[in-house]
Each structure stands twice: as structure tokens, then as C-alpha cells.
């Protein structure tokens, strides 16, 4: 390595590191853009490919902080949610917005809800969303399956 090459060595590493970081962080705007378009991208085809088994794992890790199938916790119980009118469990303290929404939970409405609850029903209380359309489809498939096991 010549003296000039030695002098450039740290510069090259710095540039490589910077390029790597830029590459890594370039995922962020791309993902954000994908998230915004997610409801439209969640075609019936994606929802139809939802897998209840994968959905169980996704449900427990994503939704399990606040929800259970059979008990009201921070959020309402979920068994039977598929086909249920939004905000209709009598003893759960829903937002007025959700109670008045008139929404009935099916694959399409659950997908819109999980994509962005506030955009779907302004004034509701759930700040959580699931950005990946495939994960949403799996969760919905699981909720549908468990709702039918009442």
C-alpha cells in the first residue's frame, strides 16, 4: 500500500460505511410509502392468502399486548369479532367514534382498520397499526377461524 493509498484508506472506509448506512436507511421511506399504499395494495387476493396458523403467531406477538380471544383487557375480546358490529360488546368501554361507526367486521373492514385505525374511524382509541399486508391477512384469517369456533 502506497502512502497515498494509506491516506485514502480511512476515507474509503468512511465512504463505504456511509453508502451502507444510506442503503440501509433507504428502506425507511420505501417502507413508509408502501405502508401508505397498503390498504389499496391489500387486494382480495392478498387477504385470501391469509394463513390462520401464521396468523396465530402474528396475533399473539402483535395484538397480544392488549387483546385476548376470550377476555376483555386493554382492548376488547376478539373471539367472534369477525362478523360482529364494531363497538358492540356491552360491557367494554369503547370510544364513541367506534360505537357510532356502523362498521361490521369482515376481511375488508378489518384490513382497513389494521392498516390505520384513525384513518378508518377518526376518534377511535387504537394507535396501533400493522404495516405489512401479508401479516394483516394472516391475522384476519386467524380471527375469522377463531370467530367460527365460538
Amino acid at each position: 500500500m502506497t502512502p497515498r493509498q494509506r491516506a485514502l484508506h480511512p476515507v474509503i472506509w468512511t465512504l463505504l460505511l456511509a453508502a451502507g448506512l444510506m442503503s440501509a436507511f433507504s428502506l425507511t421511506p420505501k417502507q413508509a410509502g408502501a405502508d401508505e399504499a397498503a390498504p389499496q395494495a391489500s387486494s382480495a387476493g392478498i387477504l385470501a392468502r391469509g394463513d390462520a396458523l401464521r396468523g396465530q403467531t402474528a396475533y399473539e406477538s402483535r395484538c397480544g399486548g392488549c387483546h385476548s380471544l376470550d377476555a376483555d383487557r386493554i382492548g376488547p375480546r376478539h373471539r367472534g369479532v369477525y362478523g360482529r358490529k364494531a363497538g358492540s360488546i356491552a360491557d367494554f368501554d369503547y370510544s364513541e367514534a367506534l360505537k357510532a361507526s356502523g362498521v361490521v367486521w369482515d376481511a375488508a373492514s378489518l384490513d382497513r382498520w389494521l392498516s390505520g385505525p384513525e384513518a378508518f374511524i377518526p376518534g377511535q382509541r387504537m394507535g396501533f397499526s400493522v404495516s405489512d399486508a401479508g401479516v394483516r391477512a394472516d391475522i384476519i384469517a386467524y380471527l375469522k377461524q377463531e370467530s367460527e369456533r365460538r
Binding site: G65, F128, V130
Partner: peptide, 16 residues
């Protein structure tokens, strides 16, 4: 289970 759910919940609400 609760900790994993909480971690994902806190991450999931960040954009909101």
C-alpha cells in the same frame, strides 16, 4: 408473552 406484546404495541403506535 405480555412483554413481547408490549414491545410490539409500543413500536406499533410510534407512527400514530
Amino acid at each position: 408473552k405480555l412483554e413481547l406484546g408490549a414491545a410490539n404495541a409500543y413500536l406499533g403506535v410510534i407512527p400514530s
